[in-house]
Each structure stands twice: as structure tokens, then as C-alpha cells.
Simulated scan of single mutants.
Amino acid sequence: MNVGFIGTGTMGSLLIEALIASGALTPAQIAVSNRTFAKAQALADRYSGMKAECTNVGVARGCDIVFLCVKPHEFKKVVDDIKPAVRPDQLIVSITSPVLISHLEGELACKVAKVIPSITNFVWSGASLCIYGKTVREDDKSRLEDLLAHISEPLRIDESFTRIVSDLSSCGPAFISFLLEQFVDAAVKETGIGREDAMKVASAMLLGTGLLLTEGGLTMSQVQERVAVPGGITAKALQLLRNETDGVFNLLIRTTHDKFREDLNKVTHAFTSEEVNGQ
């Protein structure tokens, strides 16, 4: 199986590196292209056997699965590039949340899917959120999910929940890291503990908490209940957090959804304006 990546930015490169490191793919199975060819070539130079293509169509012609790892405003151009080269048996996979399955199905004569990866996939953890088009068969889904299973837990979702599951899975690591950083910075400022020491303790705590919520089988409420003795230090601090953060995450979700709708409108316009103008 040959796999292509159009776009070698942050997430494209992360997926490539993780899939190679996990043994899911060898460099010789991978072809890459990028808007700036030198970046694609630099990545290929790091992995003997990987092929850097000068054009997007070059990647599309030779691969069974092609990941489109580009920003929303670049998507229509990339789709136009590869449209003449795609084959009915190919699977084209977008990793860009505002690009809908219907956008791709309306343009490409092949099977289409959407996968929302996470930075946690770099350490072979977290989820890969999978959405499939109408013509994708069960064996196609299994082939893609078997590939993703090397670096994540593939989860099938309904496209209508793309944004919120992206918030939890893909944006979540940034949100949680921000909160942990605030916790560490406050610890340093208030007590004088070394920042490196505080970060080691906090990072180990975060890893352990994640294991309690997964392998340990505890719910988030149960973790709080087991740590917070009634009338104790943790209980008092938790009440402070409840008071001070009330509604914050509702605002956060509204913010990400507003931005998603803005990007979705732009992508939809890009895909439909040409049809209107060209009739």
C-alpha cells in the first residue's frame, strides 16, 4: 500500500513521522508534496526512500490513500489539482474539519473520508476521528483504521459532531496544557519552587490522571471524590474552581464553533462559487 500526503506542515509531518516510527509504513511507501517543494524535499531527505513530488497530482497518481493536510483556504486549489488524476478505487482523506464530505464528493470521482487527528498521535496515543463518504466500503474503512490504529484509537463519528469532538480530541491537548501551565506558573510565583521541578510533578500527575480515567476505569467525578475529603484542602480548592470557571468552557466551545462556521462558510463559497460562475 502506498500512501500520499499533500501538505507537510505541522500535522502532515506529525502523521508521517508517527506512522513511520510506529512501523505502520516504511518511507518507501510514502510520497509527499507541499506548496513549497523544498519543505517536502527536506522531509524526504530525512527518510531514505520517501519520494518528494513537485506537484500534488504526482502524489495522487501513485497512491492508494492520499491525506490532504492543508488549510481550509488552500483546499479548493488542491482538489482542483488532483481532480484529473484520482481513480475510483482511491481513498482521499481530508484532515481539515471545515471541509465537508459533500464538498469532496461533489468534486472527486473517488472514495472520500475525513480524519481528525491529534497531536497525541505523535506518541501513539489519543484518538483519530473517522468520517466516511457514501461510497466507502467496509474493507476501505478497515484498511484506513488499521493504519491509524498504529498511532491512535480510531473512532467513527457522525459528521455533525465534527467540531465538538475536534475540540475534545484535537484542541483539547492545547487547552489542558494551557491550564496546566497556569497551574505551574502560579506554583512557582506563590512558593518559589523551581519551574522545572513543578513541571515534572504536574506532567506526571496529568499522565497518571489520564490512566485513572482510561485503564483505571474511574469517572472524572470519582477522581474528584476520591481526592477531595469533605471539608479538606482539595474540596475547598475545588469549590473555588467551580465558582471561578463557571461558564468558561461554554464560552470556549462557542468560540471554536463560531470560528468553525466562519471557515466552513469560506470553504463552501470556494467550492460553490466556481459552479455558480461556470454554471
Rank of each mutant, 00 (worst) to 15 (best):
I6T: 04
S13K: 14
L15D: 00
I16F: 01
E17T: 08
A18E: 00
L19G: 05
S22Y: 03
A24M: 04
P27K: 00
Q29F: 06
A31Q: 15
T36H: 12
T36Y: 08
T36V: 10
A40N: 08
A42I: 08
A42P: 02
L43C: 11
R46C: 14
Y47G: 08
S48F: 10
K51A: 14
E53I: 11
N56I: 13
V57P: 09
I65L: 10
L68Q: 09
C69N: 12
H73Y: 15
E74L: 15
F75E: 12
V78P: 12
V79M: 05
D80E: 12
D81K: 07
I82D: 13
V86R: 09
D89M: 11
Q90A: 05
Q90C: 09
L91K: 06
I95N: 06
V99Q: 08
V99N: 09
I101H: 14
S102C: 11
H103N: 15
L104G: 06
E107V: 04
A109W: 13
I116R: 11
P117W: 09
P117A: 11
F122P: 04
F122E: 13
G126H: 11
R137P: 01
D140W: 01
K141W: 01
K141D: 10
L144P: 01
E145S: 10
S152D: 14
E159H: 03
R163I: 07
V165A: 07
S170A: 13
S170T: 12
S170L: 02
C171V: 10
G172T: 00
G172I: 00
P173A: 05
F175H: 05
F175D: 03
F178V: 04
Q182I: 01
F183E: 02
V184S: 02
D185C: 07
V188L: 07
V188D: 07
E190P: 09
I193P: 12
K200H: 11
A202W: 03
S203H: 08
L207E: 15
G208Q: 01
T209E: 04
T209C: 08
L211Y: 11
L212V: 07
L213G: 03
E215A: 15
G217R: 06
S221E: 15
V223S: 01
V227K: 01
G232A: 00
T234L: 04
A235V: 00
A237F: 11
E244L: 10
T245F: 08
G247H: 07
T255N: 05
H257P: 01
K259W: 04
R261A: 05
E262Q: 12
L264N: 03
K266V: 10
V267P: 07
H269Q: 13
H269A: 13
A270W: 03
F271D: 06
S273K: 13
V276D: 09
V276W: 05
N277A: 12
